[in-house]
């Protein structure tokens, strides 16, 4: 028997690097989850729960072979968010999720990174569809999905996020 080595690929966009989680990201992640900005994704929460959350994000790659990436701002090296592909037990289908941390909003980073993650899902993993599950009051996040061409396709009662809107992204054919 051999051990499985998990390969978490690095992606690059114009202004961002999408990469694996490291311990050095924890302060940024804990800061996000301590803030009101996390209210649409199960927060605010304690540092201990944020730590578990970071482990879960990394471990999702082990269990599913895909997951979310840390967003690193090229210009500063700062950890500015988390974006990627997510399908834990209990989700209705595979999801494209994005969180931006304090000070990183209003620059188009979520759209830029989520577009790269969606391209990875379609081009590398061969997915034919993907949704974004968004808390119904999270207007900024719904705007990002809409900008990416996604359309409302029903609702889903999320255990912690509350009632969410299913935003379905265009298929690979629909994008080409």
């Amino acid at each position: 028997m051999t051990t499985t080595t998990i390969h978490i690929p690095t992606l690059e966009t114009e202004r961002l690097i999408l990469r694996a989680h490291t311990l050095a990201d924890f302060d940024a992640i804990a800061g996000f989850y301590a803030s009101d900005r996390s209210k649409f994704v199960g927060g605010p929460m304690s540092a201990e729960l944020a730590w578990r959350n970071m482990s879960q994000e990394a471990g999702h790659w082990v269990l599913q072979g895909f997951g979310r990436w840390i967003l690193e701002e090229k210009a500063t090296g700062k950890t500015v968010g988390m974006v990627g592909l997510w399908y834990p037990a209990g989700f209705p289908e595979r999801e494209l999720g994005y969180d931006l941390y304090e000070g990183a909003t209003g620059k188009g980073y979520a759209t830029e990174a989520a577009t790269a993650a969606r391209a990875y899902a379609y081009d590398v993993l061969g997915w034919t569809t993907v949704i974004s599950l968004i808390a119904k009051d999270n207007a900024a996040s719904i705007a990002v999905a809409t900008r990416m061409g996604a359309k409302a396709d029903g609702t889903f009662p999320h255990e912690r996020f509350g009632e969410t809107i299913i935003m379905r992204h265009p298929s690979p054919e629909g994008l080409s």
Binding site: I6, T22, S55, A58, H60, V62
Partner: peptide, 19 residues
């Protein structure tokens, strides 16, 4: 439940990656 168990197991697996 299975969803919570999934979360717990991802945390166990991810601990290796992070630490």
């Amino acid at each position: 439940d299975t969803a919570k168990a999934f979360e717990k197991f991802t945390a166990m697996a991810g601990h290796w990656i992070v630490r």
